[in-house]
């Protein structure tokens, strides 16, 4: 399972990288969102063994799955939401000001 998940993560990272290298800012933002999915899955595999116990709530079983990656991911999910929102707004506002979503054209725009 870990290996399968890691390969899936690798594919997600490759896709995200390709999108980030794109010249369209919308794709770049999408790429970062996918990258955070990949990161969350990856952290999950780094625990002490997937499905090796029950839900990490005391009283549910003799053994529990690793709670630490879960806590880390929970923090990460909320942060990546905030970052995605911020990036989206930056993209949107820049489009409003410049009239283009092409990163290559942004370069030639002089501010003021």
């Amino acid at each position: 399972m870990e290996t399968l998940l890691t390969i899936l993560t690798g594919i997600l990272v490759a896709v995200a990288t390709y999108l980030i290298l794109s010249r369209n800012v919308q794709k770049v933002v999408l790429g970062t969102a996918i990258l955070s999915h990949a990161a969350h899955l990856l952290i999950m595999t780094m625990g002490k063994g997937l499905k090796s116990g029950s839900v990490p709530i005391l009283g549910e079983g003799p053994a529990y799955v690793d709670p630490l990656p879960q806590a880390l991911i929970l923090t990460s999910i909320v942060i990546s939401f905030a970052v995605t929102a911020l990036l989206l707004v930056i993209a949107y506002r820049t489009f409003q000001e410049t009239g283009t979503d092409n990163l290559y054209e942004w370069r030639d725009i002089n501010d003021e």
């Binding site: 870990e2 290996t3 890691t6 390969i7 993560t9 690798g10 594919i11 990272v13 490759a14 896709v15 990288t17 390709y18 290298l21 794109s22 990856l42 595999t45 780094m46």
Partner: peptide, 20 residues
Amino acid sequence: NLAVSIGVGVIFTIIALAVQ
């Protein structure tokens, strides 16, 4: 871009597997 993306994905996977 394509080559770089594939490279990143592959290296990423290899490292993740090694870490696990």
